[in-house]
Nucleic acid binder design. Structure first.
Lengths: 235, 235
DNA sequence: CGCAAACTTGATGTTGCTCAAGCTAGGTGG
DNA sequence: CCACCTAGCTTGAGCAACATCAAGTTTGCG
């Protein structure tokens, strides 16, 4: 083992750089075969499992995936949701640190690990880009640590909705929740029931509207932000 | 802004590579001044604060530091404890993502960000090393996310003790807790009282011994590991 | 149209938090 | 050298937030 590399995709919905990696990966370069194969998965299908040998790096082309870790008794923690542009699967230990599954139909570009690492050594621009991605993921992970360790259920759900809204960038605050309440709960360290009740409460308080379960409208972004930031309980 | 770079030090006590960075940073290299200045801080002193402009990267030479984030009402989440060999302070956004403070007396090597980034571009070995560090931190952060989101108080404390033990590598399981119960609580998403009670309980169950508050002996490593892994409540 | 998965709502339970003392230990000064 | 003083630790009692258990309801798909 020589060229150890980087970057798992945490990308906790946060502002992960969405700069095309494929272009960087496949810039005219002699000696490396062109684009890796495209991989597609249907909702619910697994891309790889925690503990498997990590021989490929994937770039999300389209769709939504979730990453999770499990405890022996089945408790699940989702560590991130990934969108187009995100990178996943590079584990320095040689083993995937989480399971990756499709939430919606997904398409990914698969890159052989060896070629990926060669490129890291040969192209400073590429290495810098990957480093930047890893660093953004780390920042998002720390934000999630703050959320899980110190925020209330309402603060967690508010933070989540704003993250999704920022990532989707849809106008007028209408967002699409492609994942289930169970996925949201396992991402926020809550139960399905608490997520559901909290959304109902946010609706009652006129911070959001819920047309159908998977469509949320942000009615009071300032209020939601203040809640998410933890400015609501008095100090 | 051109050379964007990487790596905050999360290093959640986990198995962060402890390979000397200083050697890599200060390998014979023309054009870059030699070692950066040594910075020292007494216990409780701050190195930098969340939100400050991030113009330096630090390498821990000796001592223990803690990194934390705050909510407006004062709730604190410690995102990591750092030891010799760990790297901290490089934020791609140009602003530190957390506050760094000394727990014990510390010594750090300060590296100007510009020089650090130049070196990243010029030396693939160096970039690979930093990428590796960032990647290990990401893995540790995901482990911490699992802990915070899904583990019980007892499982959290057990995991913490084992992390510390692994990092200290002291023989015969006697470990030194240089941080206070309050620090431990804010790292695990608990209160001081719960940490204290949980340690008392672990002592009663003969998993550990507590000579003085800051010295813990691991009496039953297997039991502790099984607890930390979440194998104790039945499935 | 019917079925199953997902979601919501309610009633009850439990873990860990809050508030409140007392205890311990290490450092300082008399 | 000892006694005090304070920061940190432990322990207890009561409570609140969130989990669990248990129905119902909605939704989307075959």
């Amino acid at each position: 083992m020589h060229a150890q590399t980087v970057s798992q995709a945490y990308a906790g919905i946060g502002p992960t750089a969405r700069l095309g990696l494929t272009e960087l990966l496949h810039r005219p370069a002699p000696g490396i075969a062109a684009l890796g194969p495209l991989v597609c998965k249907a909702p619910g299908e697994m891309l790889f499992a925690e503990g498997e040998e990590a021989d490929s790096v994937y770039e999300v082309i389209r769709g939504l995936l979730r990453l999770h870790k499990l405890l022996p008794d089945g408790r699940r923690q989702i560590t991130g949701f990934l969108l187009a542009g995100d990178l996943l699967g590079l584990a320095p230990s040689g083993v995937y640190a989480y399971t990756a599954e499709a939430v919606t139909p997904i398409a990914l570009r698969r890159h052989k690990r060896a070629a990926f690492e060669r490129r890291l050594d040969e192209e400073p621009d590429f290495a810098r880009h990957v480093l930047r991605l890893a660093s953004d993921e780390l920042r998002a992970a720390q934000e999630q640590i703050l959320l899980l360790g110190r925020k209330s259920a309402a603060e967690k759900v508010a933070s989540f909705l704003l993250q999704i809204a920022d990532r989707q960038g849809t106008e007028e605050g209408e967002i699409e929740l492609a994942m289930t309440r169970g996925d949201i709960a396992d991402y926020l360290g809550l139960t399905v029931e608490t997520v559901s009740r909290t959304l109902t409460r946010l609706k009652q308080d006129a911070l959001i509207a819920l047309r159908v379960a998977s469509r949320v409208v942000i009615r009071d972004r300032d209020g939601l932000e203040s809640l998410a930031a933890g400015e609501c309980g008095e100090e």
